[in-house]
């Protein structure tokens, strides 16, 4: 294939993937309420976004939920992966199998099943936030487990044994030898957990307290409503999230490159 055809194909697909978002970015800086005629440059969407308490609470709630769930999921998934890796083969196969269930299962089913167990069977109060956090942890922990596991497989077991020979207790050897070597896996698991929690709609809907909203559930309700100032304020939110994601990707790229350079030295 000629080079310009290749660039052509990539550009057309990128246009499809980014045109809607970029258009919202442009329109978020105007007074327009629909895509079409541009009606004057203004920051009023950003002012609305940062002065409406409902919106700020919703964003803060989403971030807090993502952080808490990701932290719990990271601890649980990491410890689980270490335990599973050093267990008997039968236990490990069992855990690997169970771990796949939430990964391949539809979020709708996962959310509904946790809702039925905790809220219907055990009569737990939704307002306690426990079903919501349990739902998000169940969604995220298996992905942490699968990102830590390959790092454990790469480990050199003689280091751990050397530590034991030199007088470490198993607990010390675990903290000082094993954990530091799997940090990249733990970190990427954590990042994945945060993004999964931020993106989730279904588990949140089935387990959340009636008055609590994450970005996903809020946006879906907002598209049903007719409040145009909220709708356009969400364009501003999309713009900010888009910028944050670009920044994060650039940072990770830069970080990886530096890491590679250090490795090459």
């Amino acid at each position: 294939m000629k080079r310009y055809i290749q660039y052509g194909i990539l550009s057309v697909v990128l246009l499809f993937m980014y045109f809607p978002i970029l258009l919202l970015v442009v329109y978020s800086f105007t007074d327009s309420t629909t895509i079409g005629a541009i009606r004057g440059f203004s920051f009023h969407n950003y002012v609305t976004l940062f002065t409406t308490k409902e919106l700020l609470d919703m964003i803060a709630g989403t971030l807090l939920l993502a952080l808490i769930s990701a932290l719990i999921a990271t601890v649980l998934g990491t410890v689980g992966a270490i335990g599973s890796f050093y267990s008997k083969k039968k236990v490990r196969i069992f855990l690997d199998g169970i771990n796949q269930v939430p990964i391949i299962n539809a979020d709708v089913v996962t959310g509904f099943s946790i809702c039925v167990l905790l809220i219907i069977v055990f009569g737990m109060n939704k307002n306690s936030f426990i079903p919501l956090v349990v739902g998000h942890v169940t969604l995220c922990a298996p992905f942490v487990y699968t990102s830590v596991m390959p790092k454990l497989k790469q480990l050199d077991n003689s280091l751990y044994e050397a530590a034991l020979d030199l007088g470490c207790t198993p607990k010390e050897a675990l903290i000082k030898i094993i954990i530091p070597q799997i940090v990249p896996g733990i970190f990427s698991g954590f990042v994945l957990a945060v993004t999964l929690s931020l993106d989730d709609y279904f588990i949140t809907t089935y387990t959340k307290p009636a008055t609590f909203d994450t970005i996903s559930t809020y946006v879906v309700n907002a598209t049903r409503g007719a409040q145009t100032n909220i709708k356009t304020a969400l364009w501003a939110l999309s713009t900010l999230i888009f910028l944050v994601v670009i920044a994060a990707v650039c940072f990770m790229n830069f970080h990886n490159k530096r890491g590679e350079e250090l490795d090459n030295r």
Partner: peptide
């Protein structure tokens, strides 16, 4: 005994409670 393999116990309990049990209830 906090040996390495016992670390799988909390994860196993969690997964049985919140993955296996909900599906069984369904």
């Amino acid at each position: 005994n906090i040996s390495r393999k016992n670390l799988s116990i909390p994860y196993m309990i969690y997964m049985v409670c919140f993955v296996v049990a909900p599906l069984a209830v369904l």
